[in-house]
């Protein structure tokens, strides 16, 4: 029979808990009982059709800009590391520009692109820009191109974190540069990159609210539309916040799960386990 052993706890920890719990309870009480928050309106609109549509649009924008941001960012990262100075400088300028100007400004630029270039293309094949650049298109392009600049740096950092010996070992086997990049370095870089992409996704969830200025009916814009007519600004911002919190909570949980998988098998990455099949 082994005696029950308890871990050490400081007296202050109990005191801290007591203080934290009572403070939170009081805060909650004051928020819940304050009639100015209009919780009945919050409840009324929480699942309103237009809000749900906004939630969908936010998810779509986040997914599109992260997926294409990663793809485009990976291309930029490969260019950044390229021995060709044209490619690396092109990528460097891109990153410099898109990280160096405010996202909001970039979005408005894309939105107004049609005013700057009424037609896009070359003589014989021209597209009417006003038709092409819908608010959604401007939003998706704006978020993606901006995200790609950040992803490029993230992915480049992932590559840089790999020991130089890996490249040398791969080269000495006669592997071509593309094999070295995609079969040897990229899978190892993923370990560093994936958790950061999780962070970026959560940030994008909220950054996507910026496109409300373009009139894209994502979550925040949906809330704005409603309070524009009923003037219940605070309750509707609470509605939007509840949804943002819910979505980022789900994403955080997913992120931790992914990180656990990567942490558990520090040296195993399933995606490349097929090399032996000569794929």
């Amino acid at each position: 029979m082994t005696a029950l052993r308890k871990p050490y706890r400081s007296r202050w920890e109990y005191a801290g808990w007591a203080a934290a719990v009572s403070f939170s309870a009081l805060l909650l009480l004051s928020v819940v009982t304050n009639p100015n928050f209009h919780w009945e309106i919050v409840g009324e609109y929480l699942t309103a059709a237009i809000i749900i549509e906004g939630v969908w649009m936010t998810l779509v924008l986040t997914a599109v800009s992260i997926v294409f941001g990663v793809l485009f960012g990976a291309i930029l990262a490969v260019m950044l590391r390229s021995p060709s100075s044209i490619l690396s400088r092109l990528a460097l300028s891109y990153v410099w520009f898109f990280r160096g100007t405010p996202l909001l400004v970039q979005l408005i630029f894309w939105f107004n692109l049609a005013a700057l270039y009424p037609t896009i293309g070359f003589p014989g094949f021209e597209i009417n820009a006003t038709h092409l650049i819908t608010p959604f298109f401007a939003a998706a392009i704006g978020l993606t191109t901006n995200e790609a600049a950040y992803m490029a740096e993230i992915i480049r950092g992932g590559f840089e974190s790999i020991n130089r010996g890996q490249t040398e070992a791969a080269s000495s086997l006669g592997l071509r540069p593309r094999h070295v990049t995609f079969r040897i370095l990229l899978p190892q870089a993923m370990k560093v990159i994936v958790p950061v992409i999780g962070n970026q996704t959560i940030a994008m969830l909220k950054n996507s609210s910026l496109v409300s200025v373009l009139g894209v009916s994502e979550l925040l814009h949906s809330a704005e539309i409603i309070y524009g007519t009923n003037y219940q600004t605070i309750p509707l911002l609470i509605v939007a916040s509840i949804w943002y919190l819910a979505m980022s909570t789900v994403l955080s949980v997913a992120q931790h799960a992914v990180e656990k998988v990567y942490g558990r098998s520090t040296n195993r990455i399933a995606t490349v386990a097929q090399v032996s099949n000569g794929a």
Partner: peptide, 29 residues
């Protein structure tokens, strides 16, 4: 470099591949 093999102080095996994958990687690719 295909005709020259190299062995390093720090081994430099590919950590994301099993032993057999490390071996067959170059000749199959």
């Amino acid at each position: 470099r295909e005709q020259v093999g190299m062995v390093f102080q720090n081994f430099n095996l590919f950590p994301h591949m099993t032993v057999v994958q490390n071996l067959v990687c170059a000749p199959t690719l």
